[in-house]
Write a protein that binds this DNA or RNA. Structure first.
Length: 137
DNA sequence: GCCAACGTTGGC
DNA sequence: GCCAACGTTGGC
């Protein structure tokens, strides 16, 4: 099973809102590389939920519940979205500072390509995030 | 507010 | 098809 990291600005769509709604269509991705990643997602894949800008931390987890389909917010027909469901909020969010300071996490795509809003996460990175998150899931 | 990274656009 | 100019994202 694969793992991905998805970004959201906390003042636009925070994890708490996904928790309240249960699941949502992950629309609005308009980057070719991110689209490749969306298309590669399988139902049940893990998603790390990252708050950009105001948050700058990995704050929880979600999961893929529907694979890529045409993004209803896109009129050109060239972009896709997936459906994601809430899974958890970490007791201990992992800040970007902590990510960069950690010898395992500093190699994450999140750091390497900071503008990419949907990026892959390697298994050791997921393991490390979960260890640091204090989440007993 | 600034700047680096990177994607897109348009002239040639 | 190249590349300069410009726009956007996101960290600082």
């Amino acid at each position: 099973m694969a793992c991905w990291l998805i970004k959201s600005e906390p003042d636009v769509y925070p994890l708490a809102q996904l928790e309240a709604e249960g699941q949502t269509a992950w629309t609005g991705v308009r980057n070719p590389t991110a689209r490749i990643n969306l298309r590669a997602m399988q139902v049940g894949d893990d998603l790390l939920y990252y708050h950009s800008n105001l948050g700058k931390a990995i704050v929880g987890m979600a999961t893929v519940v529907r694979t890529a389909y045409p993004d209803p917010t896109d009129e050109t027909g060239q972009w896709v979205c997936v459906d994601v469901a809430y899974r958890a909020t970490f007791p201990q969010p992992i800040t970007l500072t902590a990510v960069k300071a950690d010898h395992v996490l500093q190699g994450m795509e999140l750091v390497r390509q900071s503008r990419l809003s949907v990026c892959p996460v390697r298994q050791p990175e997921l393991d490390r995030v979960l260890a640091l998150s204090a989440w007993q899931g």
